[in-house]
Amino acid sequence: MAILEVNNIEKHFGSTSVLKDVSFSLEEGSALAIIGSSGSGKTTLLRCLNFLETPNGGTIKVKGETLFDASLKQKRKESELRTKRLHFGMVFQSFNLFPQYTALENVTLAEKLLAKERPDFKTAKKEIYDKINRHGEELLAQMGLAERMDHYPHQLSGGQQQRVAIARALALEPDILCFDEPTSALDPELTGEVLKVIRGLADRHTTMIIVTHEMAFARDVADHIIFMDDGVIVEQGAPRDVIDNPKEERTKQFLSRYTQG
């Protein structure tokens, strides 16, 4: 059974329709890449999954549980919303690290705040924090940042910052990790280190959705590709079908623009 099922998502801002009847599913342990030109709705789709935008129609299910159903006029209680959000992790194009915290603090902050809600928090505070810190250190080491844990974001390069952001998103062990153009804000020479880390996550079968403009990377890493244009999914399938042998005219046009560079 698919870990994520998205059905008939609609989203409009005022009279502009941004997502039209978007449906797809994602298998556990697989990587999905969403490609398409700017303004095609890719980022909005990711933001809907992370509850940063509320869709106007459709349903979102994770592991069979309905997280969102537009037909139910549900009151969005903050506590429920928070639990639902934790199914997803999000890596932003502009990193959005917290500037007043070190790399390690960025990674551990949310986990420490969540730990406060544990019944044994008061009695075992030190052990809990130690464990969280160790977890954060492991994640940063995994990102190749063992030497940079106590650096503040402004002391790190863009590529290092984005790797901290990935560690931060992994800290709460989300079911699905979302990347919103993770390398678009980076200088070309820094994209490699971030892509390498994402590739590593894919090798370990982290369930991922990656919105990207890096076609070669998408073809390499993704198990499934979705091409979006003007708010609709034009074409989807295995990378060798969508990227190497696109059927739709719009996909062909888009890809030719990219391969021409």
Binding site: L52, M90, F92, S94, L97, A110, L113, L172
Partner: peptide, 16 residues
């Protein structure tokens, strides 16, 4: 304060 700061907190399950 950039909106992205608030959003980053939200997706990490923090309260307002």
């Amino acid at each position: 304060v950039p909106a992205g700061q608030r959003e980053a907190g939200e997706v990490l399950g923090m309260t307002k």
